[in-house]
């Protein structure tokens, strides 16, 4: 197979083609979709999802799933926001450490329950999804942290830009993606996550420390949700106990699975997930242009998850067929 063929056969190419086709189709109705301004809108929709998607990708690759990311985002954003409110003289940069730290802790709780008690991650994170959301209400007394309490510099990160008018948070999202790429592809532990996900029985026999790797992926997922939490405060300028991060998990899972991460573990790439996030951003940006009400978003996420499952299935069957043909 030549180089071009190899590129075309890649999963990421398919998603890129989908993005292009979608953009072209929308621009047939609304030409203004293909402008720099709408690209800006799309990019502004993506950073939170992209950051959390990197964590979710690692969790899915390890053959688990984390439903609690929206609640981890909410709880860490709320605690950080309350810190800003109650201790106004604290340097705002510390908020990042606090938010990421809380997220890591919550993620570790998920990981510990999954790995020490051998529980299915779906049920554990369904439990902690509600547990963390409840805790968010409890610590905040069901009160919102209002705009005036979020430091101006933090809010500025979503508005000011180091270059080309692109805000800081988008650069941060891409930095997280790059780091994840390096971690997943070029470190020993990163490769072990893939080994664990492709064959959970063989991996420990090859010296993969299952407990530690499992704890690690959930901790990373939590840490990145925490980072997304403080960026939520930066992007929207408030933290609300019921809205912040609510339903976020479906958005992220939709982006991750359409980005080619297999639900059967062991398969996934950072580039694919980035493209998946971008595709979901395009869809979200196109809806108001096409006059589709925002209420349709949730249905679209659901449909995207199902379509992604179908694609994943046909890709896997092709792979099996090719494997059999090669052996015959």
């Amino acid at each position: 197979m030549n180089a071009l063929g190899r590129i075309l056969a890649r999963r990421e190419t398919g998603i890129a083609v989908m993005i292009v086709l979608f953009a072209l189709a929308v621009s047939l109705y609304k030409p203004q979709f293909l402008t720099l301004n709408s690209l800006r809108v799309i990019l502004l929709l993506t950073p939170l999802v992209m950051i959390a998607a990197m964590g979710q990708m690692l969790v899915l690759v390890a053959r688990h799933v984390d439903l609690s990311i929206g609640s981890m985002l909410g709880l860490s954003a709320m605690l950080t926001g309350m810190m800003f409110r109650d201790l106004p003289e604290i340097p705002w940069g510390l908020g990042f450490a606090v938010s990421i730290g809380i997220g890591t802790l919550l993620g570790l709780v998920n990981g510990a329950l999954v790995t020490f008690f051998r529980l299915p991650s779906i049920i554990v994170t369904l439990g902690t999804l509600n547990l963390y959301r409840g805790l968010t209400f409890i610590v905040s007394n069901a009160r919102q942290v209002d705009r005036q309490f979020i430091p101006a510099d933090l809010k500025g990160m979503s508005q000011t830009s180091p270059l080309l008018g692109i805000p800081w948070i988008i650069f941060m999202a891409f930095a997280v993606a790059l780091l994840t790429y390096w971690f997943a592809m070029h470190t020993r532990v990163g490769r072990q996550i893939f080994a664990l996900g492709s064959n959970p029985i063989a991996a420990p026999l090859r010296g993969v420390k299952v407990t530690q790797v499992t704890l690690l992926v959930f901790a990373i997922s939590g840490a990145l949700s925490g980072l997304a939490g403080i960026m939520y405060a930066s992007r929207w300028g408030f933290v609300n106990p019921s809205n912040t991060g609510f339903g976020f998990e479906f958005q992220v899972i939709a982006a991750v699975v359409i980005g080619g991460v297999s639900i059967n573990g062991g398969v996934g790439s950072v580039l694919g997930v980035m493209l998946g996030v971008l595709l979901m951003g395009c869809v979200a940006a196109a809806l108001p242009l096409l006059g589709i009400p925002g209420t349709a978003q949730s249905a679209i996420y659901g449909a995207v998850i199902l379509v992604a499952l179908l694609i994943d299935r046909s890709v896997r069957r092709q792979g099996i067929a090719r494997f059999k043909a090669a052996r015959a």
Partner: peptide, 23 residues
């Protein structure tokens, strides 16, 4: 029919059904 894991399928349909109800 398609032999997909029910966990992820029903997460997808959960989002889809709720979204359709919202529409």
């Amino acid at each position: 029919g398609l032999q997909l894991p029910s966990i992820i399928v029903t997460i997808g349909t959960l989002t889809l059904y709720r979204g359709l109800a919202q529409i």
